[in-house]
């Protein structure tokens, strides 16, 4: 029994999402290997992967065709390497979600998406209906292809391991697709999905400048990432990638401060695993208060500046 984790990496660094997937893979009970597929900087990421506690081997596939994780090129590589494994796991990031089903279809396997626990060698739980129900599922496929909800698994220790790195080869460029560009969001703030503290704003912030005026100073003070509800994103206050929720980012920080967010089901599905939830809302009946550890019924335009000052 051995499991292969598909590494998410950038700039020679292993992403935290990979560490959560390693923890999930270890729960299957066998050896855990990591595949790093990428371009020039993949070697550095493979060396970093070799340090992850609990990883016994790292496979490195270095080819310019793998640099941008194009599913058309990477999936056949993974499907080939998967021959020697009982399970293939990828984190439920946009990269993992893009590639894993393509791998599963190439292997004629029905994928298990977004697992939140390992119940047995082939049994898992996963959220369905936007987190309104939890399904326990069991696969009958000989090989498993799994995506892992990263917030549901602790991160494996990034150091302490000393796995060997072995080169593997795939077919390279499938000639079907090409990478054009990435408009990366540049920010000095911590990344939403890995932030320890998140300050999130909702529709009550009125408009973009107001959102900025009230949310940003508090986030600055706390060294927090900034999130938003779908309503705030749809209203154009902030860009898409701020969205926390079932259809946006799933987060689980130590502290989540929801400001002017009513707490629609799909938003709650994206943040209810946060350790401490604070809600500030004018409406005492807002559903957000049903999940908040600390609730304050107040006008955010008074409360937030005061909070920023007093923290």
């Amino acid at each position: 029994m051995a499991a292969l984790v598909i590494a998410e990496h950038a700039g020679g660094q292993i992403a935290d999402a990979t560490l959560s997937a390693v923890t999930a893979a270890a729960k299957l009970g066998g050896d855990v290997h990591v595949l790093v597929a990428g371009g020039d900087d993949a070697k550095g990421a493979a060396d970093a992967a070799a340090q992850i506690a609990g990883v016994s081997k790292v496979l490195l596939a270095q080819d310019a065709a793998y640099a941008h994780q194009l599913a058309e090129n990477v999936a056949p590589l993974i499907a080939g390497v998967a021959e020697g494994y009982d399970a293939v796991l990828a984190p439920s990031t946009t990269t993992g979600k893009n590639i894993a089903p393509r791998v599963a279809a190439l292997l004629d396997v029905m994928q298990l998406s977004d697992i939140i626990s390992v119940e047995g060698p082939k049994s898992f739980t996963r959220p369905i209906y936007a987190g309104n129900a939890i399904a326990t599922v069991e696969s009958s496929d000989p090989k498993l292809v799994i995506t892992v909800r990263t917030t549901a698994f602790d991160k494996a220790e990034a150091t302490g391991g000393s796995a060997a790195v072995e080169a593997v080869n795939g077919a390279g460029d499938a000639g079907l697709s090409s990478f054009v560009k990435l408009d990366a969001v540049k920010s000095d703030r911590p990344e939403l999905t890995s932030a320890g503290i998140i300050v999130s704003g909702g529709r009550a912030l009125k408009d973009g400048p107001t959102f900025e005026q009230y949310i940003t100073p508090l986030a600055d003070k706390l060294g927090a990432a900034i999130g938003a509800s779908r309503a705030a994103v749809d209203a154009g206050y902030v860009p898409n990638d701020y969205q926390v929720g079932q259809t946006g980012k799933i987060v689980a920080p130590d502290l989540y401060i929801a400001i002017g967010i009513s707490g629609a089901i799909q938003h709650l599905a994206g943040m209810k695993d946060s350790k401490v939830i604070v809600a500030i809302n004018k409406d005492a009946d807002a559903p957000i208060f049903q999940v908040a550890d600390i609730g304050l019924v107040a006008d955010l335009f008074n409360a937030v500046p005061e909070l920023t000052e007093k923290l």
Partner: peptide, 13 residues
């Protein structure tokens, strides 16, 4: 494409 780090553009045949 809406990806975790921003927007990625790919060209497909």
């Amino acid at each position: 494409r809406e990806v975790d780090g921003g927007l990625e553009t790919v060209k497909l045949s």
